[in-house]
Design a protein around this nucleic acid. Structure first.
Lengths: 221, 221
DNA sequence: AACCTCCTCCCCCGCGCGGGGGACATCCGA
DNA sequence: TCGGATGTCCCCCGCGCGGGGGAGGAGGTT
């Protein structure tokens, strides 16, 4: 399986260099070279390469805008690896938001770039280590799971357990069976949960649980 | 300049394997091997290695807790590289929050681990590509709404509208008022939605909507 | 014209659900 | 030792809900 690569950089010399590097790898094939972002977008749409390596600083359309345009079209399956000389936080932020699969500095050893292309092609992502450090510091906070609302502390362990099951749309009878208790017991627990959390009915309970991240998949965010 | 490394894993075999790998590198020296997290903490404090490679699953104290304890002491300049077999999001979150300089899966090729140790030693950070991808996805929440399930196409515009409101735990009467129609109409819509989506009742509809990201703040995820 | 989809509204009927009570057991801390 | 919290089970009652029908009108295609 050979991977097709598109190269976009406004310096012909750098393009030749990268192309030479890629050609040392039997499984990589450089199918296009372009000198600006607009050409990158059109050529990606035409050739559908597996990976596009884009410089950020380019004429007409910079690498970030090109990334956004390429990934905005769901017909494109091309993975984007961005190259830059300067690792400004702003660049990184936009690149990740646009959905790039790689953010690398030009100071990176060539063999790392090769490996990054393969990583991107298989659907994973790679960020330059010097950037990763700052990224961790800055966004570890934003990964924090939604804070558990304080009123949850009012619930007993059993009640939280029941709430979990209610959130999964289980009926009282199903919950009773699963917990090996009578359904009247479940009704009592549910009633207490609703009273303690100030919810009207189990429908509100389901929404509450999902909004507050008490359930998996839910709520993605 | 030779880098000193501490190795922590509860499997002696894996330790030996990693040690052997490190010893192929002239600039790396494995100064200690420990089998649990508590020993890792004390040995790091005693030996002050440049880098500590910790397995996450360890007796007494897991790698994450050990990382937190080590980095909590400002006297330690040791960088932490975490190893794990499973890349649960919870692990990643805790690792990054604790300030680890590396988060790698054991499936990683050995030479990558070597390079990760050097990266960590110079103050940068490296995250396993397969994890990075999800990290980016989570970071760029706005651009990664969960793909809408195909059966949603079966719904008419009105029905989707009603489903939205159902997902927000609105009662039929409330929905009727908001849409300025009779409540019997709403009942019809809800019935059609349930039938088309194969859901038993509105409770399931609420869970469905949240799981599939039809509501804001659903899922966490 | 006939036909279809969609939105709208109406009927009856059964049932799960939630609130209002109460009861009895265990465990634990005052 | 007494009480409080918790978990378990039971009663009755009202009601929102969902399925089963039916029906009319608007807007579109054939």
């Amino acid at each position: 399986m050979t991977l097709t690569v598109l190269l976009a950089d406004d310096h012909a010399m750098l393009r030749s260099g990268l192309r030479a590097i890629f050609e040392t790898q039997s499984d990589l094939r450089c199918v296009a070279e372009v000198a600006d972002g607009r050409a990158a977008v059109t050529e990606v749409a035409r050739l559908r390469p597996d990976v596009a390596v884009l410089d950020i600083r380019m004429p007409k359309l910079d690498g970030l805008d090109a990334t956004e345009m390429i990934l905005a079209d769901p017909a494109n399956r091309t993975k984007i690896v961005l190259l830059t000389t300067y690792d400004s936080d702003e660049y990184v932020y936009r690149a990740l938001n646009a959905g790039a699969s790689g953010f690398l500095l030009k100071s990176l050893p060539p063999e790392e770039l090769i490996s990054a292309v393969r990583v991107a092609a298989r659907g994973d992502a790679l960020i330059d280590p010097s950037v990763t450090q700052r990224l961790i510091a800055r966004f570890a906070v934003s990964l924090a799971p939604p804070p558990a609302p304080p009123e949850l502390a009012l619930l007993t362990a059993r009640e939280r357990e029941v709430l979990q099951l209610v959130a999964e749309a289980r009926s009282n009878a199903e919950i009773a069976a699963q917990l090996h208790v009578g359904d009247e017991t479940v009704k009592t627990h549910v009633s207490r949960v609703l009273a303690k959390l100030g919810l009207r009915d189990r429908v509100h309970a389901v929404a509450y649980a999902h909004v507050n991240g008490l359930v998996q998949g839910g709520g993605r965010s």
